[in-house]
């Protein structure tokens, strides 16, 4: 039988949980890149990686305090954006796409390489850098807090509070920027770079600023998530994660301030419910759904995300709430 109460409780936990926060931050970054600036960054997970690992390595390898580790993580995001932007931002959009996905893969391969074990922990990853974060928690780290049946462990609750605060601050920052003349230039670049050049704006600088800003959101997402899970494992930072963030962004609506957050929450809510449903429906000796192997449920989510991404992009590129006339992405 399907336990609907537990489905919903899990779904609501996913709605506000650490994954929703992490992907909201990745998608806020992608919104600056793709939604406002028209930049195709397919390596956002690489920014999360340098953020998280920058912090972890700074603390564990160089013995810095956690707060400066956070700064190192953010700076790492800035540096990565500059490195990727300088060669590609003068070129057509798909070059950035290819280079970013390649760079994210390079970073993952390097961090997991056995030759880097002393530095990044190899495939084992890193732990033990974020103890002081948990010490700051006002909650009882080991206790479960119950909100009408939705339960969070104290340490997770702390991370969730911090995470949503960061998301809120990021949204304020994005809001201030996109309603300013700066945001107007960025939106204009998304539509037609040459027109903006002819109006005396240095397009390259704006694109670079957007790439850095969005990359920093990605790095901050990586930092928040690494503090939540208290561990860094290289293979978490694999390319499909970026596409998850894209799916969340497009669901919520690219080019809208709240789009990435709403999209990320919906994304994880739906994913959690379908996941749990399939798991329950395929489990046991007499499963409700017999043609799917219980073991394959994890892979099915990727299939669903992939199909959703393609279908949304084809039929509702404006997101599930947007109006057709507002679709921003038909340039080129």
């Amino acid at each position: 039988m399907i336990d609907i109460a537990s489905l919903l409780a899990n779904g609501i936990a996913a709605l506000v949980g650490p994954s929703a926060i992490f992907f909201a931050l990745l998608a806020i970054g992608l919104n600056v890149h793709f939604g406002y600036g028209g930049l195709l960054n397919f390596g956002q997970i690489g920014f999360a990686l340098v953020g998280g690992y920058g912090m972890g390595i700074a603390v564990l390898y160089f013995g810095l305090p956690l707060w400066s580790g956070v700064l190192v993580g953010i700076v790492a995001g800035v540096v990565l954006a500059l490195l990727l932007g300088i060669p590609t931002l003068r070129l057509r959009a798909d070059y950035l796409a290819i280079v970013t996905i390649a760079a994210a893969e390079i970073l993952r391969l390097i961090t997991r390489s056995t030759s880097m074990t002393d530095f990044s922990g190899g495939t084992q990853g890193l732990t033990g850098y974020g103890g002081s974060f948990r010490q700051l928690s006002p909650f009882d780290n080991g206790r479960f807090y119950d909100f009408y049946g939705v339960r969070f462990l104290g340490q997770d609750l702390w991370a969730i509070c911090v995470g949503w605060t960061v998301v809120g601050l990021s949204l304020i920052l994005v809001f201030l920027l996109v309603r300013s003349p700066w945001g107007r230039v960025l939106k204009a670049i998304r539509e037609d770079e040459d027109a903006v050049r002819a109006l005396g704006k240095n397009v390259f600088v704006y694109k670079m600023q957007a790439l850095v800003l969005g990359g920093v959101f990605g790095a901050v997402g990586g930092i928040v998530f690494a503090l939540t899970t208290q561990s860094l494992t290289p293979d978490f930072y694999s390319p499909p994660q970026t596409f998850f963030a894209y799916a969340a962004l497009i669901i919520g609506g690219a080019g809208r301030v709240f789009g990435p957050v709403i999209g990320s929450m919906i994304f994880w809510f739906v994913l959690s419910i379908t996941d749990n449903f399939l798991r329950q429906a395929t489990a046991g000796s007499n499963p409700l759904i017999s043609f799917i192997d219980n073991q394959d449920v994890g892979a099915i989510r990727f299939v669903l995300v992939g199909v959703a991404l393609a279908v949304l992009m084809a039929f509702r590129p404006q997101g599930i709430f947007g109006k057709r006339s507002e679709v921003l992405l038909d340039a080129r």
């Binding site: 920052l173 201030l176 920027l177 300013s180 003349p181 700066w182 945001g183 107007r184 230039v185 939106k187 204009a188 539509e191 903006v196 109006l199 005396g200 704006k201 600023q209 800003l213 507002e326 921003l328």
Partner: peptide, 24 residues
């Protein structure tokens, strides 16, 4: 996708709000 007025204002030179920190 910009309004006619925004098209016009976009072209104005030397705007403080066009700079990243100026905008903030």
């Amino acid at each position: 996708k910009l309004t006619v007025l925004d098209n016009m204002r976009l072209a104005a030179p030397q705007q403080t709000g066009e700079r990243f920190f100026g905008a903030l």
